[in-house]
Simulated scan of single mutants.
Amino acid sequence: MNSPNRPVVIRLLILVVAMFVFGFALVPLYDVMCKALGINGKTGDQYRQTQIIDQSRQVRVQFLSTNSADMVWGFYPKAEELNVHPGAVNEMLFVAQNPTDKPMTAQAVPSISPSTAAVYFHKTECFCFTQQMLQPGERIEMPVRFIVDRDLPIDVKHLTLAYTLFDITARMPPVAHIAKNGG
């Protein structure tokens, strides 16, 4: 049966398939763009922890924190920088505090610079792996454990680990506390 709507339906189906394919292509396209433009250094989170520590050199790791435009939390690292030996496990604590009178949920997004060195920075534990939900007035210390790879080019003597904190409360409303006494 030939319907006058058939060409429209076919075009819409082609559009749906194209959008589906484009959705899968976004991640590789993003990676290619970041590499080509040298932006948003993604960290190499997959890392073998059997590496030997290079005591012969140090790398300065600077820590930065910023809030997105709509985020009101206090958010900062406990120190501005660390001098680390490549191959050693290191830890830095970041502090977050919810100054509001309502529960809020946040997500931290990391970035490493220079972006060419990002593949040599390995987070083994990070608060950025999960969303953080804080009650009104609550303050927490959140660790990030990391290793700077021994294969970091010798000319790179300074890395910056920067986090941007986003308010995702509207997208992920906090879960109400439920009494655990059977009811």
Rank of each mutant, 00 (worst) to 15 (best):
V16H: 05
K102A: 04
P136I: 00
V8H: 12
V175S: 10
S115H: 07
Q132K: 03
V9L: 08
A179N: 15
Y163R: 08
V144S: 07
T116P: 03
P143E: 01
N5I: 04
F20S: 10
R150M: 02
T116E: 09
I112E: 10
F94H: 05
D45M: 01
N90Y: 07
T100S: 15
L12S: 11
P77A: 09
M33A: 15
N98I: 00
M71P: 05
T43G: 05
A118E: 02
S111Q: 12
A118F: 04
N67Y: 08
F146S: 09
F20H: 10
T116S: 10
F22M: 05
V72C: 04
R139E: 08
H177V: 13
Q97E: 15
F146M: 04
N2M: 05
P103T: 01
A118I: 00
M104N: 12
V59C: 07
V8D: 14
S65N: 08
R171Y: 04
V148G: 15
H177Y: 13
G38I: 00
S65H: 08
S3M: 02
Y47D: 06
P136W: 02
A170C: 01
G38A: 03
T164E: 12
A69V: 06
M1L: 06
G23L: 00
L13K: 13
H85M: 03
P136T: 03
Q58K: 08
E91N: 05
L165P: 14
Q46D: 14
Y120Q: 06
Q132P: 02
P174S: 01
L152S: 12
Q131C: 01
R11E: 08
L12F: 12
L12A: 11
E81W: 09
P173F: 04
G41N: 03
A25Q: 10
L26E: 10
P103Q: 02
P77H: 14
G87Q: 07
Y30R: 11
P114Y: 06
A79Y: 13
Q49H: 15
V175L: 06
V32I: 11
V17D: 07
D70V: 03
D149A: 04
Q131S: 09
I52S: 13
I10Q: 08
I147E: 01
C126D: 09
S115L: 00
S115T: 13
G38D: 04
T169D: 02
I14H: 12
Q97C: 07
T43C: 01
E80L: 00
Q49K: 15
I140Q: 15
A108L: 01
K35P: 02
F129R: 11
F22G: 12
C126H: 11
P99Q: 03
L161I: 11
R171M: 02
V95R: 08
L26N: 11
T43I: 02
K35Q: 06
M19K: 14
V8Y: 15
N67V: 03
D155Q: 14
I53H: 14
R139K: 13
V17R: 07
Q58T: 14
V61T: 10
D101W: 02
V59W: 12
A118C: 04
F146E: 07
E141Y: 13
Q107N: 11
A106D: 05
I10V: 10
Q131N: 09
L12N: 11
R150W: 02
S113K: 08
K102G: 01
V148L: 05
H177E: 13
P86W: 07
D31N: 13
G23M: 00
